[in-house]
């Protein structure tokens, strides 16, 4: 069953431009130059109930804009969105009860009070009974590994504890669709792992649909079977992570240690030699011919050691994100 259906979604903004310097400022003060920016450009995808989907792309690729359109904070310029059978931009109360948006760097908990106070307000806003409230707090707190932290002022909590409390506050009304924008931003490895485990447990327990963005590829690789890759507002990939790896890097990385030195030209026919030093040779071999070529290498040479590696996904996508764009 489709929980999220997005069809040719687009969003354009009007922005003002200004050159640096005081003269340009004065000019800008009198007459402004404006132009349109396409933040999201004709995106379509569907997400089924209970899926966890990773949403990746460089900064400013349009991830947050898309997330905000999905939860109804921003109206689309073009195209249609449906989430849990609702049109988000109407922001009906029954829709709002079904979803949640967590933004890693933005806090909704009241800074100078313990999280419990903010949670109580949330419980009243979402109309939970006292019983439901305490049951859910107990349950979510134990899943997140929180206890006394809930009665300490938010400003005294560590970043990780704060994020967990933030998650608790956002999930108190037990939403079935979760939009998470950088939920692990700035957290240390342990806290990241904790948040990941929690999200996966929540997903399994309630069959919730989760769409998350993250800069940490670890979040994506461990949680999401499916990823959406977006760049400059356009959707470039929708599918499994392994398919993305294949698309990004059609070759595999083979490292051979030969028993005796050989002439380098003889190995070149098996694949592109990246590096050769004495008896150590590093080759790139296309995935499709990997087995046949390795078999033939093994039968033609005396091999001491052989290792086949995937270029790590973090590196691939990290490189891609660092470049900002990969199609030009």
């Amino acid at each position: 069953m489709k929980t999220i259906a997005v069809d040719s979604l687009s969003k354009s903004y009007l922005v003002t431009e200004k050159k640096p310097g005081i003269r340009a400022s004065l000019k800008h003060f009198v007459a402004r130059k404006t132009s349109f920016i396409r933040a999201v450009d004709n995106i379509s995808f569907n997400i089924n109930e209970g899926e966890i989907v990773g949403f990746i792309g460089s900064n400013g690729a349009g991830k947050t804009t898309t997330l905000k359109m999905l939860c109804g904070l921003i109206y689309p310029s073009y195209g249609s969105v449906s989430v849990a059978g609702y049109i988000p931009k109407l922001r009906e109360k029954s829709f709002l009860r079904k979803i949640t948006l967590v933004m890693g760097q933005k806090q909704q908990l009241i800074w100078d009070l313990p999280p419990m106070d903010s949670l109580r307000v949330n419980a009243a806003v979402y109309g939970l009974t006292d019983r439901e409230f305490s049951l859910r707090i107990d349950e979510l707190a134990s899943m997140l590994g929180l206890n006394t932290e809930l009665s300490r002022p938010v400003r005294k909590l560590s970043l990780g504890q704060r994020m967990k409390a933030e998650l608790l506050a956002s999930l108190l009304h037990r939403p079935s669709v979760l939009f998470l924008d950088e939920p692990t931003l700035g957290l240390d490895i342990n806290a990241q792992l904790r948040v990941r485990e929690f999200l996966s447990a929540y997903n399994q327990k309630y069959g919730a649909t989760i769409l998350l963005t993250s800069h940490y590829m670890g979040d994506i690789t461990s949680l999401c079977k499916r990823v959406l890759l977006i760049d400059k507002g356009k959707l470039f990939h929708d599918g499994s992570l392994s398919a993305l790896t294949e698309q990004l890097s059609p070759c595999r990385f083979v490292q051979i240690e030969l028993a005796e030195p050989v002439n380098d030209i003889s190995l070149a026919k098996y694949g592109e030699i990246v590096h050769q030093e004495g008896q150590l040779v590093k080759l790139l071999i296309p995935r499709s011919e990997l087995t046949s070529r390795i078999t033939s290498i093994l039968s033609n040479y005396q091999i001491k050691d052989l290792e086949v590696k995937d270029p790590p996904i973090e590196q691939l996508i990290g490189k891609l994100l660092a470049l900002g764009s990969f199609n030009d």
Partner: peptide, 12 residues
């Protein structure tokens, strides 16, 4: 500070 967005997503 972006607190308005979460407020708008609550039924209040």
């Amino acid at each position: 500070e972006g607190r308005l967005s979460p407020y708008l997503l609550q039924p209040l």
